[in-house]
Every structure is written in C-alpha cells, then in structure tokens.
Design a protein around this nucleic acid. Structure first.
Lengths: 128, 128
DNA sequence: CCTTGACTTAGAGTCGACTCCAGGTGATAA
DNA sequence: TTATCACCTGGAGTCGACTCTAAGTCAAGG
C-alpha cells in the first residue's frame, strides 16, 4: 500500500506519515524498487496504533520511547508496561477534567436554552 | 488578590494570567494605586472558567470569541449557546477517542502483566 | 537611604506537532 | 518524446499556547 492510500484510509497526511517515520515513531517502511514506500500489514498496524495514541494526546516523545523498547524485544516488557501505566493514569486524569468541563458546558447550555425560551415568552406576552 | 496569589491558587503562572488578559481572554483586571493588578470576585470567576475550559482543550480563539460575546450583553445569548454546543460536541468526540485509547491501553497493560507473570513462572520452574 | 522583592511592560523565544517548499526521480499516458 | 503525476528528500515555516527576558516602578525592611 502506497503512502497516499494509507494517508486517505487513516486521515493522516502523507507529510505526517513521513514525519513519523523520520523521527522514529514508525520504524522504517519497506520500499519498492524505485524507492517508494510500500506499507505492509505490520506498518499499517503501527500507523493505527500511533494514530489511536496520538488522538488521545499521548506525547510523541513517549511514543518514540515505547516504540524503541518494542524494537528491543522481550526484556523491555516491564519498562513498556510502566510507560503505558503512567500514560494511562494521565489519560484518565485528562478525561476526568473533561467530564467536569462537559458538566459545566451542559449546565450553561441549559441556562442559555431557558434564557432564550424566556425571551420568547416575553415577546409573546408583549404581543398578546 | 494579587497575581501571585491567583497564580498559586489556580496553578496558572503569572505570565499566563497576564497573557490571557493581554489577548482578551480575561477582561482587564482592576489595578491598585500603583498599577498592580487586584483580582476581585468576578475576575476570579473568569479565571476559574477559563482554566476549566482550557483544561478540556477548548481553543483560546473560541474562548476569546465567547468572552467577547458575554461582554456584549443579552442579545448574544443565542450565539453563545451555539458556540458552547459546538464545543460540547467536539469535547464529547475527543472523550470518545480517549475512551477507545484507554480500552486499548488497559488491554495492553493486562497482556504485559501476564507476560511478566509467565516469565516469573518460567523462572520458578527452571529453579524448581 | 538603600536594597530587596514583587510587581509592571513590550517584545522575543520556545515547544510540540505538524505542514509546506524547492528541487529531484521514475513510471505512465498522449 | 514530452508532459503529468505521485512519489522522494532535506530543510524551513507555521501554529497554538505559552514562557522568558530586559528594563523599569514601587512599597517595605534594615
């Protein structure tokens, strides 16, 4: 699969895919005879993983470290687990903050709905 | 309340508080006789609100627009409501993404736990 | 009186994460 | 054969959101 197809399928720009590879977030992708990237199964799975992690706000640096450990094999499992646990905690913390904000937004929206309704009532009363 | 106290209480640097004021995210704070900011009740509530919205990732630009509308009074209520609804939807979308990521992280962490346990078992078997 | 320390400003610098650009290559279609 | 097009590279530019710097003011303590 060429870069354009991966780009379209996962809504990540080709520039970003190349960028991820350059900084070591995705290991080097195989090339065809003319030097063009040909994404295989494994590459695709890596792209999916990175996209998922990034969409939740995990920092690139941490992901680079994690991907590096994966490359080093089984003796890094403990370290990898610790990274994921740490990131998991931070993710949960962000979600808690977001839930609080969501509650406040919902409350404010409701107040505004009522304000609009009251205004409409007023108009009706003025007219009638 | 002086800037340092607000900064400490809400864990926002003085620089950031001044920055927010400069870009119009927080309306101009009153000053004492020597030109030093003196945050009052209303200012504090604005800081709290902005902190909350920012912690959920609402962009500064949108918040500036919203705060501007608030200053303009009641005839902007409808517009404000629309902004909040739009931001609410985006927030929910981000939270959904994060939940997916959280599930994957939890799964991976569990897999790693098992891997570590199996390794330990192996060692025990080797020893015993 | 002098120093210290918290405040002030305008403006420059940093950081994370892309995003774009110039210039070049190679396969395909007219 | 020439043009088009998708790809390639290294490096520069952008963007959002701060964060820092330099130079200055002022109140309080020694």
């Amino acid at each position: 699969m060429k870069i354009a197809e991966v780009s379209e399928r996962y809504a990540i720009s080709s520039d970003t895919l190349r960028y991820y590879e350059r900084i070591g977030l995705i290991p080097l992708v195989n090339r065809n005879a003319s030097g063009i990237r040909d994404y295989g199964e494994i590459d695709i799975r890596r792209v999916e993983f990175i996209k998922c992690m990034r969409s939740a706000g995990l920092p690139i640096e941490v992901l680079i470290e994690y991907v590096g450990l994966v490359q080093q094999g089984d003796q890094t499992i403990e370290a990898r687990k610790e990274i994921l646990k740490e990131q998991r905690e931070q993710l949960v913390a962000r979600m808690v903050e977001m839930q609080k904000t969501l509650d406040i937004l919902d409350h404010k929206i409701e107040v505004y709905e009522n304000a609009v309704l009251n205004k409409e009532k007023e108009i009706v009363q003025t007219q009638g």
